[in-house]
């Protein structure tokens, strides 16, 4: 407490001459001043939170109960938007596409990034160079990744099918065949796996060498060491990657929108690439159904909360935190 008073009130010498009650008053005044300064430093965030998060959340909840096209005033319709969502086949389609994308992409993403990180960990001096190489695609703007997808995965002329042809495989029409659009987008997304690789590599390097030495002394083989030492020690990083990529996967937009939606596409069907946020964006800013889109946003929020909560619950059993009480 005294150190607090010194910190807030100023000089040490004051303490000896000032009577206790006045000292208390000084302390209170100083602490008020302290709070005031703190609030001044926090003010940008507080203002931003109120204007750009809190109010929008409330207003978005209200809008979800209205019919609103920006031009006319919101018209209150109760839960009609939510009821309409249940019978909108495109919602079901978009949810299905998004679930497929996330469920397939996240495990692949984790496996590929773990494999690359393990390789890098064993690469000796070359690891720095290859770390750069693997990370570079992550810097590519998603729009350009969408363009690359259309070019590299083109059924007739694309590089991917050309390479598959060398091995006698007749590659599918990735960009037009509804059955192959999502797998194609998933493969393309693996190209930007770099950040996860770096996070996992850092986690691998953080495993104390001594753990491996004692495992060896105890006669543990490769598999035993992998499952009893490496995996538990990097499980927090793995879990982090799974959570972050799941949330990102559920909101996937840029690449698929670039490749299949927007003003230009009149040539082919894009139902297979209609992900949830793309449909939400269309409803909000192309069809100006702001009320309906707001209701969609809250469903997305609910889905993300549930999925994250499940992952957190599962992680309690599976993720090992050192020194956890």
């Amino acid at each position: 407490m005294t150190s607090e008073a010194i910190r807030a009130g100023g000089r040490v010498s004051e303490r000896q001459v000032v009577p206790p009650e006045e000292r208390e008053r000084n302390r209170k005044r100083a602490s008020r001043r302290n709070i005031l300064s703190a609030m001044l430093f926090l003010s940008p965030w507080i203002v931003g939170f109120l204007v750009f998060t809190a109010w929008p959340m409330i207003y978005s909840a209200y809008l979800s109960l209205t019919d609103y096209d920006v031009i006319n005033n919101p018209n209150f319709i109760g839960f009609e938007n939510y009821a309409e969502m249940m019978s909108d086949p495109k919602i079901l389609l978009a949810l299905g596409n998004t679930a497929f994308f996330t469920l397939v992409q996240v495990p692949l993403y984790v496996i590929v990034s773990l494999a690359l990180a393990l390789l890098l960990d064993r690469a000796g001096r070359a690891s720095g160079f290859f770390r750069t190489v693997f990370f570079l695609p992550k810097m590519t703007p998603p729009v350009a990744v969408g363009v690359l997808f259309l070019l590299l995965f083109n059924g007739q002329t694309g590089l991917v099918n050309t390479v598959l042809g060398w091995f006698g495989i007749n590659g599918p029409a990735w960009t037009t065949d509804p059955a192959w659009v999502k797998p194609g987008l998933i493969f393309m997304s693996l190209w930007t796996v770099g950040a996860s690789v770096i996070i996992l590599l850092a986690a691998l390097r953080n495993v104390p060498e001594t753990l491996y030495e004692s495992a060896k002394l105890d006669g543990a083989g490769f598999w035993r060491t992998s499952f009893s030492v490496t995996l538990p020690m990097i499980s927090p990083a793995l879990f982090f990657i799974i959570i972050v990529n799941t949330i990102a996967g559920l909101q996937t937009f840029d690449e698929a929108y670039t490749a299949f939606f927007g003003a230009g596409n009149t040539t082919y069907s894009n139902d297979a690439a209609l992900f949830y946020v793309i449909y939400l964006f269309q409803q909000a800013f192309e069809f100006l159904n702001m009320g309906y889109a707001s209701a969609m946003a809250w469903l997305l929020f609910l889905v993300i909360m549930i999925v994250t909560a499940i992952q957190l619950l599962v992680s309690r059993k599976l993720v090992y935190y050192e020194g956890d009480r």
Binding site: W55, M57, S60, Q251, L280, A293, A297, W298, L300, M305
Partner: peptide, 10 residues
Amino acid sequence: MLPGAVTMIP
């Protein structure tokens, strides 16, 4: 944790 979509419209 809040998805951008929730605040996007307001």
